[in-house]
Amino acid sequence: MDKGMIALGAGLAIAVAAGLAALAIGTASGKAFESMAKQPEVSGKIQGLLLVAIVFIEACAIYALVVSLLLLFVF
């Protein structure tokens, strides 16, 4: 297959995934900081939940990374 098209596809995959994941992490942490400012007494709990949420969001971007690496190195 055409090497250039594969490279283009890999780049597009990670670009879309990284952009959307960044958007999601921004929204999540923004909301979390907002609620932390409103209720400082539960900020510890929110921090833990935020970490988990960010890990799950990041996982989606990582899947795209794995796919694009497979595209680059396997095909």
Binding site: E58, A59, I62, Y63, L65, V66, L69
Partner: peptide, 10 residues
């Protein structure tokens, strides 16, 4: 598995 592999490999 994918999370660990993707992060470290990337």
């Amino acid at each position: 598995a994918f999370r660990l592999f993707g992060n470290i490999f990337g």
